[in-house]
Design a protein around this nucleic acid. Structure first.
Lengths: 190, 190, 190, 190
DNA sequence: CATGAATGAGGATTCATTCAT
DNA sequence: TATGAATGAATCCTCATTCAT
């Protein structure tokens, strides 16, 4: 439980993300993870109490890392539209840059593995965007509709744009980003 | 095969949808389906050749039924906005009325079970919406952006609205529908 | 147990021989037999009490038919060598003419299905050859060794010759027969 | 895999041979093997990848061991008859000393399990006898008939003699061996 | 800390046989 | 007589987890 070998831990984590991306969470086995990480299956139990614990930890890591990447780059400057766009672009960039983590989170989220603690974590981090959008409503820049609508549309538009790019349906260029954000903004702006 | 007992077949189908809704597709076992349907596990093989075949059939059924529900009520009359709204509302109603089928389709679609034939079926039915949105672009009512953007946003907004209602975050009323569609329309209209 | 439809019975028998020849006794299933015979699986139980009974009956039939074919054509005339050759040739001809029955008997004989009754039947019919070879010993035409030696070598040489012909290793012609019998005769003659 | 416990591996092998001898290859189940070996069924998969792999390996082992036993003692000295007799006696001794292995090989050979690789192995080892008999033909000690005849008769006579001894029909003594070989030799000698 | 061996609880699938019609 | 439906027992195989070293 107290991992000594950081290198080994890193390999486990990487192997898991990679395997989930390649074959899906449902097909993930500890034996495969171990093989990909170059260790014995039982060694996994030195680093994680169980498969559940491993996945929980990975989700928590990925979620936190994702969040920090967004916050780090977010332009905090006034014009709200600029701020929202900045976040939108960051989220898209993040999804495109870390596909394995993103896919892992998506599959974990809609699986039986999803723990209550991690569900709460997701909620907590969402509060950040919540605040920004609320702010936009207060200054009457965004529609005065229940916040969940704005949240869902904002996140959904990033998600779908990323998916279309990943699938090769849309090009990974400026044009795509502009169009994606345009739809989002038209939808949520007052 | 040649099911004689329609009642039993219906029970198998219902049991499967219900179990996937409750515990997820990954956790679905034939033994559970059989128990829930009140039959022996081996009896399932009289109705379906394999687990794969069972899931394929269920997806095909659900997809077709869903599609027919949408088409049945779709207002085919000119004003494009009215048509789009009609479809949007039908889709939402369908998702709210048949949550088990919907969840099943979502999980099946992103699983290893998804068959090529069913992937094609999905594509074929999507062509229907494709045509309507394309039409809207031609008459310059909708934005002249790559169609996938419009498709994704349209479907995504229905999906998310339904999810929020199902989770109890939003009320299942006129107001919610109006707002949901408003965001969608603002996003895609020219 | 009292089969009415002789035609159906014939089809079952033929289907079974054919299937065993094609895929082996171990792979034989009642469902396959029924399908090949054009009837329902459960109908088999009208003609036979069980799979065991079916196989027992088939073995008995094949064994008896084989025996009768040999006896029918056996030249009963004095010169012992001619008689032995005649039987040898008949046995070979029989094996080559009825490969499915022969293969069935071989596989049945060395399977768990082999019933005690049929083991006895085999022994009883062997008595016929036993007598002829004994006769040959008495008139000092054949080696004065324990009879089983002569029996085994005689039967074995027919068996192996047939096998080699069936496998295409040897041609199905006069030459092969002459050679096969030559070896047999040289071995057993005094 | 990497069997650590040689003792356990030995038990698995012994159990398999014994069970095939007792109840036949067709009736062989992994559960039985495991029970007889005193381990869990799943443990078998540490030693062998599958039932098929287990049987393949056992056949290969038995075939090789059998061959080496024959070669080891084979008198390589000139008089061909002595050499052939030496091999004949070795083969008989081997069959009588290792009945379980022999029965296993016989059943495996005529089963669906027989792998291509093992078919080739069998052919390769047969080449050894092939060469000796061919040699006998060249020096005109053996009949100038197609080699398969000689091979089949030689092997068949050993087989049948062993079978008769095993069944208690013939005594396991010098006399039986002498007679068995006499018949074989008379058949194949020029 | 690391591991290979071992396992028990299950999972999909097959099949001879029974039964109601 | 004939059958399709139904089943329980069995089969091979997988996998998360434990344990002795």
């Amino acid at each position: 439980m107290k991992p000594k070998d950081t290198e080994k831990l890193r390999k486990i984590v990487q192997a898991t993300y990679a395997l989930v991306q390649q074959r899906g969470l449902a097909a993930l086995t500890l034996a495969e993870i171990a093989r990909a990480a170059g260790i014995a299956t039982s060694t996994l139990y030195i680093y994680f109490d169980s498969k559940q614990a491993l996945l929980d930890q990975l989700y928590q890591d990925a979620k936190t890392a994702t969040f920090e990447r967004l916050v780090a780059d977010a332009a905090p400057t006034p014009p709200l539209k600029a701020r929202v766009r900045s976040i939108w672009l960051n989220m898209l960039a993040n999804r495109l840059a870390n596909p394995a983590e993103i896919i892992f989170m998506e599959q974990y989220t809609s699986s039986q593995f999803m723990s209550e603690a991690n569900r709460e974590l997701g909620g907590r981090l969402a509060g950040f965007f919540h605040a920004i959008l609320k702010n936009g409503q207060d200054e009457e820049t965004l529609k005065a509709v229940p916040l969940p609508f704005l949240m869902a549309l904002f996140l959904g538009s990033v998600q779908e744009t990323a998916r279309l790019v990943r699938q090769g349906v849309l090009a990974d260029d400026e044009q795509t980003r502009a169009t994606g954000f345009l739809l989002c903004w038209d939808a949520i702006k007052a």
